[in-house]
Design a protein around this nucleic acid. Sequence first.
DNA 1: AAGTGGTCTAGACCACCAC
DNA 2: TGGTGGTCTAGACCACTTT
Lengths: 232, 232
Amino acid sequence: MTNPVYIRIVEDIKHKINNGSLKPSDAVPSENALCKEYGASRMTIRKGLSVLAKDGYIYSIPGKGSFVRMPELNKYTIFYDEMKNSINTVDQSRLLEVTIIMPDEKLAGELQTTRNKNVVVIRRLFYTEGKPIAYDIKYLLYSKGMPIVEKEIEQATFPEIISGSMSAFSLKKELTIYAQIPDKEIKNHLNIYDELALLVVEQKIYNEDNKPMGLCVTYFRGDYIKLKGNSE
Amino acid sequence: MTNPVYIRIVEDIKHKINNGSLKPSDAVPSENALCKEYGASRMTIRKGLSVLAKDGYIYSIPGKGSFVRMPELNKYTIFYDEMKNSINTVDQSRLLEVTIIMPDEKLAGELQTTRNKNVVVIRRLFYTEGKPIAYDIKYLLYSKGMPIVEKEIEQATFPEIISGSMSAFSLKKELTIYAQIPDKEIKNHLNIYDELALLVVEQKIYNEDNKPMGLCVTYFRGDYIKLKGNSE
DNA sequence: AAGTGGTCTAGACCACCAC
DNA sequence: TGGTGGTCTAGACCACTTT
């Protein structure tokens, strides 16, 4: 069970970077030098270097060489889904309303459209063990072929609803996370009587031409959600 | 300015996936078939497929073929740094305290250590335009070579402090985000007199052996921070 | 001119899978 | 057994950077 040559190259160089013998912006030995060092062909060395580049360890400049990359200390990956979180899972959702409106100035701006376009509004409540834990509002630009079927809406997440009418690969998404105090309407929906903070998550979905397709705002009870992310 | 052959392959297949003629779990044509289709050698075709794999469009199973991947609808990337956010930047930070303590049960558990180990505690306040907007507590497992220099601490972010004493590449990090109501101590520090929600961000940093190196909890005034993330 | 990385070829052998 | 992807070679030409 000996490893392929290119994997050995990857491990060796990762090791040198991790123990400090290769530091950020240092040059990695040239491809020809590595060919001799490992007695391998250049394509094999390049395979190893491409893995290191893919993993964010090095970058290459044509005509100059390959260099150790500055690590991205503040990059995190987060898997967000309004129906699931790391404390609880939504086990029931209730559809409050599906309507079609003309957007006001602010919403039209958010969706980069005009006030005379149709916008589908979906309001839902999410429950965990019978208790309402989140209030959810979605605004979708109405497009042909969009199936507004109540049953589907009740269970689907925001990207799922949007991707029903188009390929999901070309979607671009933005997430905005903040905290605020609930207003009266939300207090009513979520049965909040005391002081309690809300975690608010906004999702905005764009098509491949960077045109907004929809906006989704979810107001979570602060005591019922934690978002988790990690590096790698 | 004709593109390399492997780029044409990448673009063609991405296009087929985006317009739906190749759907998730569909098989991509075999490497030999693509060789004939593009009149290219197998290594060139493989280069194209490896780019598609790196970008998350396809995956390969030895002996079977390459297949279109199910898109990750809920994956986001977020760049978090306790000193910067999308509303404001911290333009001043004040060091409240640097002490060495023995952790209580809860903290010892969080740091996966015992109660007789030394833990460095750093408390800071972050300001924007003279106003306190965040209260920050860091707990670091004390290790040799850790430079506890007040001047450095005052300006450095959490990963920067940790990476001072070790290579930053092998660090693993976890982020936890939630909302809560401030207690009296935090209200005092942040000059909060009314009802106001806090956005709390916890960072936990592990070394390459998955041992926790430190914990950082930052309490932001809800009206002074929004975290942003996006797909891609 | 010499060295670097980027693209590409036409072969080869292997392990794995399905028939 | 034939097809698939995984690894690897020993060359080649190119554009770019450095000396």
